[in-house]
Amino acid sequence: MVNENGVLYTIEGVAAGVLMITTAYLVVSTTVMFTPGDSHIIDMQLEQLGNDVLASMDTPIRYGDPSPLELYITDNDSSGFSNHFLLYANTAAQPGFGRIKFNSTVYYRKDADVGSYHFSDSGDIMTGREHMVNVNRRVFVKDYTNPPPPGPDDRPQSVLLEVTLWRD
């Protein structure tokens, strides 16, 4: 036997449901947006990582010694720097993220001018379309034994090492 006791409540329920969903849709469609701001979180993390790696490389092993970074620049040892940098940078890399790649340049002052030379890279071809960040470290070089021509002056100086890094 079919009776109509519940009909009214059902209609009410359906109507209220439709009304609520419509309201929700309108509210959401009005205010939903695509935030490009979150793309900078990745930059921030990569930049922190790069700065930390360079800072730890620029810390002398014993007090009074030159730091490993200073030695790489003094000897123009680009492969030594590359291995060391990649080891540190990729130690903290999490699975699912690509490996870190880099390219670095040294800037120095020669009288009133600023010169630069290419120092080291990870051996990857840069297309120029990577999502890159740039970190830098001022390195104190006491004695330039092997400056690449046309190189910096032979004097104790502070050079600026710039490392551009990205993930593949």
Binding site: Y107, Y108, R109, A112, V114, R138, F140, R155, P156, Q157, S158, V159, L160
Partner: peptide
Amino acid sequence: PIQADIETL
């Protein structure tokens, strides 16, 4: 000279 390096760079 080192201070000049840092300032210029």
